[in-house]
Every structure is written in C-alpha cells, then in structure tokens.
Simulated scan of single mutants.
Amino acid sequence: MPECPARKPSVVPYVISWSAEFAELECMLDIKWDSDGPRLGYKDEKSSDRVGRDEVLWGRMTYQPGKGMPLYDYMHPGRQYFAMRWMTCQVCGEPASRNEDGWLFLDWRKPCDPPSWPEGSVTAMPPLCELHAHVAIAECPHLRNTKFLVLRVRTPRIWGYSGAPYSLTREGWSVGERDVRYPIGDPSLRAVLGSRLYRELRNVTVVSQGIGR
C-alpha cells in the first residue's frame, strides 16, 4: 500500500466525537446491588447500557455526528464500540476489508506492546476498509512522523476494555483515573465506566510499513 504525503483531512472518521456531543452527567451514576455486591450503574439504567459477557457499564454520550466541530483526539464511546465489536471501518462505518489473510488494520508500536509486536498487539483502533486505509495513511495527523504497519489479522480477538474506574465511598462513587485498561473477566470491571473496546491482534501478516509525512 503506497505512502502518501499527509494532507488536510477530507473526511471525518466515523468513530470520533463532535463538539455538540456530550457525556452523561456523573450525577446519573448509581449503586446497583446483586449477589456479588455493589456495582456501578445508571439511575435510569437500560439493558443496552451494558456490554459484553462482563456486562460492563458503557459510557453514555449523545449522538449528534456532524454537529459542531470534530474532536479528532476523542473517540465517541458508542461508535468506537460498534466499529470494534462489529468490525466496521473506523472512518466510514461500513464493513471493514477482509480477505484470506484477515482483517485490515493499521498499527504502530506502543509502550505496552509485547516483544512479538505486531503479533499480540492490543489496540482500540477499529479496522478499515481498503479505501479509507489509503485515506488514513495520507491524512491522519497521528500517523505523521510515526512508523506504522499495514496489517492483515486473521484472529482479532476481543481482549478487554478501558474506561474510568470508580471507588465506592460513603458519599457514593468517586473516580480518579480516567482511562485504565482491563482484560475480559477482571472483577474490577464491575466499577468501571467503559469507553473503549480492545482487540488483540493474533495471526498477523504484515502487508507493508511506512512513516507518515
């Protein structure tokens, strides 16, 4: 896949947030009880507020794509989850590219990556269709001056989540950090307000490598 000089974005990615979209107020959080004790919930909770086999409480955000200014540094929790869960393109929201070598991903080395990288990389960036992989390489500001790989991934298994971990106090829920990763099955997920779904890239084939400009 050829490299292109970086240019002004011609398309706003499906997964990002817009300035007119707002997260649910923290005062809407509640203490829910089950046989295992307290867990984080919403006062007006619906079944759609929880995701995965761990039933992680997912961060609510209003849905107004195209309203206001695009916030390229922030992914919309709902759209990120949809794209990663159903393997749709992070740019257009349509089905991502898949062939005999697997799904199409872009990846770059991160501090938490294993020595086997890109094999075993854990990512919150959903896959892409072929058209928008080219667009991302040419236009994405995060790829400028970053060494990246174009990958095909046969087994992009769901790894876990990231979000804000809450602690239960006498006054109710209290939050410290805002973006902590947890693997599937971690008991701490009972008190996490999720914002990103992660997949682990297994059975990886490197298609090409490059550096944004």
Rank of each mutant, 00 (worst) to 15 (best):
L104R: 09
A164F: 03
P183H: 03
C129N: 06
E139F: 02
V150T: 10
H134T: 06
G185D: 07
H76L: 10
K43E: 05
I158C: 14
I211R: 15
E171M: 15
T205C: 15
V12N: 03
W18H: 07
M1C: 07
S188E: 09
E45R: 07
H132G: 07
A23S: 12
E177S: 13
Y63S: 13
L29C: 15
P141A: 13
M61S: 10
I137C: 02
R202Y: 03
S167H: 15
I211G: 09
E45M: 11
G176V: 06
P77Y: 09
L201N: 02
L189S: 07
G163C: 05
G194F: 00
Y182E: 01
W18G: 04
F22E: 13
G93A: 07
Q64K: 14
Y63C: 09
W18I: 11
M87V: 07
G93N: 08
S10Y: 11
V180E: 09
K32F: 08
Y81S: 01
E139S: 09
R199D: 01
A6V: 02
S188I: 04
S195G: 07
P187A: 07
I16T: 09
C27T: 12
G210K: 00
Y166N: 03
T169W: 08
R196N: 06
L106F: 15
V150Y: 01
T155S: 13
H132C: 13
V175N: 08
K67L: 08
L71G: 06
E55A: 14
F105T: 00
M28C: 11
M125K: 02
A20L: 12
I16N: 12
G210W: 02
T169L: 11
Y74Q: 14
V180Y: 06
T88L: 05
P111L: 07
P95F: 05
K32M: 13
T62E: 07
R196D: 11
M75P: 00
R170H: 09
